[in-house]
């Protein structure tokens, strides 16, 4: 039972990291209709930059986090500029563009950082363990969990209590109305893409102490994020957070308790959610 508790904490930490990465993706889709397939590559870029920057001191760790966030934001800005030119084009054209960008970015990252899985050097305190519920638990994971919770709370506050956050949510609900009150919705789209890129970079930096970062990181994160975004309801941040935690739990607790079905578990869960959901998503047949 205790072992499962530890696994559950792992799963929630993993889920919150995924939620930070996926929240921006779902907002960008909900607001501007941009499904950014380069999102996973931004996460990987953030991870690589954090690994390259942090050298075992607290200040370098902080610098790595900042650099990862900045590179994510810059990448988001590039995607915003690239997709803005495709206004009113099909989603498949966007997929072509953003998947192409992901391939280019992935190739550059592998060329610069090599094909190995890299882990950052974190301060010694984080290398140790702490006692949780009578069991040793890695300190770095606990720190990541804490930061992830803090970011989730800050993100919730930002979306619900600030003017910018309200504008974003309004754009998801009704673009025409946002334009009607004198705000250019395309500016909101661009801002959302930059912000979601920054969150992606940060999520990449945060996940490296636990998972490391390698050539597969981008694809894995993209796949999980897509599952989260769709299962959570396109454009819904609370839905994405719930789906992300569920995915995190399935990937840790589920896979350990039912190892025979491990490769199928997540896909089956997603298919079940999609087939059984009551509220129709965009593009579903209304009958």
């Amino acid at each position: 039972m205790d072992a499962n508790l530890i696994l559950a904490i792992d799963g929630i930490a993993y889920g919150l990291l995924l939620a930070i990465a996926a929240a921006g993706l779902t907002l960008a889709f909900g607001a501007g209709g941009v499904l950014n397939l380069a999102h996973g590559t931004l996460v990987a870029a953030g991870g690589y930059l954090a690994v390259a920057t942090s050298s075992g001191t607290w200040s370098s760790l902080a610098a790595g986090m900042l650099a990862a966030t900045a590179v994510g934001a810059a990448g988001g800005g590039v995607m915003a500029a690239a997709t803005a030119a495709l206004n009113r084009r099909r989603h498949l054209d966007q997929a072509l563009l953003t998947f192409g960008a992901a391939l280019i970015g992935g190739d550059l990252l592998t060329t610069i950082f090599g094909p190995d899985i890299l882990r950052p050097r974190v301060p010694a305190v984080l290398e140790g363990t702490v006692i949780v519920a009578g069991r040793p638990y890695p300190a770095d994971r606990l720190a990541v969990l804490g930061i992830a919770v803090a970011i989730a709370v800050a993100g919730y506050g930002g979306l619900h209590r600030t003017r910018a956050g309200r504008l974003i949510r309004a754009t998801v609900d009704d673009r025409g109305m946002v334009a009607g009150i004198g705000v250019n919705p395309r500016l909101v789209d661009a801002a959302v893409l930059v912000a979601s890129g920054a969150l992606a970079g940060l999520a990449g930096a945060l996940s490296t102490p636990i998972l490391g970062v390698g050539p597969d990181t981008a694809d894995t994160v993209l796949l999980l994020s897509l599952i989260i975004v769709v299962c959570g309801g396109l454009g819904s941040v609370p839905g994405a957070v719930a789906a992300a935690v569920a995915v995190g739990l399935v990937q840790t607790v589920g896979v350990t308790t039912i190892p025979g079905l491990a490769p199928y578990l997540l896909i089956f869960t997603m298919a079940l959610v999609l087939l059984a959901r009551r509220t129709p998503l965009t593009g579903e047949v209304h009958r």
């Binding site: 499904l35 989603h91 997603m270 999609l274 593009g283």
Partner: peptide, 8 residues
């Protein structure tokens, strides 16, 4: 299903 849901 249609669109994004079909794709997923």
């Amino acid at each position: 299903y249609r669109g994004t849901v079909f794709l997923m």
